[in-house]
């Protein structure tokens, strides 16, 4: 994918928030850039796996297990996706 470069953090945040809002167990009004999946949105560990998979689809990347294990909030997802030059 060459020098695709890094995505803009604000746009990534917006897209991540949108993906989380669409997740069927989430109350969309509760989702913000500072939301944590478990404490703020009531998602369990299996839900979190599915949300992280939804980020993979949205940004066309495959997130390695070691990284995916660490993503438990909107901010952590944004941090990973803005640091991955393959994210689209």
């Amino acid at each position: 994918m060459g020098a695709a470069g890094y995505l803009d953090a604000n746009q990534v945040t917006e897209r991540v928030v949108e993906v989380v809002k669409k997740f069927n167990k989430v109350d969309p009004s509760k989702v913000s850039p500072t939301s944590t999946f478990a404490a703020d949105l009531g998602l369990d560990s299996l839900d979190t796996v599915e949300v992280v998979m939804a980020f993979e689809e949205e940004f066309a990347v495959e997130i390695p297990d070691a990284e995916a294990d660490k993503i438990s909030s909107v901010a952590e997802a944004v941090a990973y996706l803005t640091s991955n030059p393959d994210a689209k």
Binding site: L46, D65, D69
Partner: peptide, 17 residues
């Protein structure tokens, strides 16, 4: 153990995709 189970679940969701 919990991490291994979640990784297994991830591989299943990925295969289903």
């Amino acid at each position: 153990g919990a991490r291994a189970i979640l990784r297994l679940y991830r591989s299943i969701v990925r295969a289903h995709a």
